[in-house]
Computed example of a mutant assay.
Amino acid sequence: MLEPGSAVARVLARLEELYVIGGGLGANRIGYSSEEDEAHRLARGWMEQAGLDVSVDAAGNLIGRHPAGSAAWTGSHLDSVPNGGRYDGALGVVAGIEAVERAGHGAVVAFRDEERGCAGSRALTERPDSYVELHVEQGPVLAAGSAPLGVVTGIAGVARGEFELEGRPGHAGTVPMAGREDALVSAAELVLRVRDAALGIEGAVATVGRLEVDPGALNVIPGRAVVSVDARAPDTERFERLIGALGLEPTYRVEPAAMDAELRALLCRELGSRGLPVVELSSGAGHDAGILAAKGIPSAMLFVRSLNGGASHSPEELSSDEDVALGVEVLTAALRR
């Protein structure tokens, strides 16, 4: 059991303070909302309590710097999706405050509005020497491997786009099946092709998350369907193959981002020195670390095992207190190097 006054107990208590902002089911701190503002006010106070020099940049990113030096950065974000989880983003900020204080140098940043496109990290103009982000995995891989922590190899590229399928609307009761041009049937076939394209490329995923049907009446054969696709792959070669296999013309595209080899090796050594399994894995979700890596800043991520089947962006998001404690310990050690 964690001691009430311990650093990790403080991290967990602060996560609870952030979680209840806004009320309702789960975390509700949309980017640049009054709720995210309140989270930043809390974090600023915690940074000041840790003896950090606090500033806010033009994008609203909150940065706490240790007076002894602040070239090595850590952090994450404090915004959430609607009805989000307790740990996503927030863990990296509150654990980062503890780690910087304990390491005796470094800086911790709370980026603005990560969930809707990483607005804060994209707008960052400073260039730290390095950036290491602690984050919950948001998936089941570490739990399946009985590993409390994992080192991220890279962050998947994301491509999004739409397919518009035309059919011929008609009366649902009078047009024979053999003569129909049903746009929704064509869309259903496309959904299966999207699935199969991703299954054919190791590590790739593709999702149809939205389907629009016109005219959308119960007794009318669909004359038009729009299929929205989200496609992801862990490296450039597989990313390009996936986009090609789908025939997708992306309207939104973020390239894959590899994590820094030296920082990855450092994190792996820290895990091994503690007798922990050394598991490396790709991140299918986007993160601020990927944005910084794309800017040429050496970046790394340390994942904390997610429980409840890897549930995330949900009130069911869960990590154990013990795994959180290990994450803070390894992050602190990495900042000390």
Rank of each mutant, 00 (worst) to 15 (best):
E16L: 03
A325Y: 03
A261V: 15
R10V: 06
R180A: 10
E280T: 15
A197Q: 11
P176Q: 08
P277D: 13
E317D: 09
V109D: 00
G244H: 11
R269C: 01
L263Y: 03
A293L: 04
Y32W: 10
L218K: 06
G173Y: 09
A294C: 00
G327D: 00
V20T: 15
L52R: 00
D53N: 09
S121I: 09
R193Y: 12
L331A: 02
L165E: 05
P82C: 11
V20K: 13
S34M: 06
R337S: 15
G139N: 02
V254A: 13
E280K: 07
D37E: 15
D196F: 06
R86D: 05
L271Q: 03
L248G: 07
V194Y: 02
L15Q: 08
A178M: 10
G85V: 12
G247W: 13
A198G: 05
P315Y: 07
V56C: 11
Y19C: 00
L184K: 02
A217Q: 14
E17F: 00
P148L: 05
V54D: 02
L42F: 14
A294K: 11
G223D: 07
S306A: 12
Y87M: 01
M1Q: 10
V328S: 01
A144P: 00
S273E: 15
R127A: 13
V54M: 01
L248E: 03
R195N: 12
E237L: 13
A156R: 00
E212R: 14
D260M: 00
V94C: 01
L318M: 14
L25I: 13
V208N: 08
S55E: 14
G96E: 04
G223P: 05
V100M: 03
A147T: 08
G5W: 11
V109G: 04
F239G: 02
P82S: 12
H313E: 12
R232L: 05
V175E: 09
V208T: 12
R14T: 07
D53I: 14
M1V: 14
G75H: 03
A110F: 07
V213M: 03
S55L: 08
A123Y: 04
G139E: 01
L142R: 03
E212C: 02
L246D: 04
G145Y: 05
N28A: 11
E202A: 15
D88H: 12
S76T: 01
D57H: 13
S34F: 02
L246G: 07
A159K: 06
P256V: 08
S146K: 12
D182L: 08
E48I: 10
E189F: 07
D321A: 15
N28F: 09
V213Y: 07
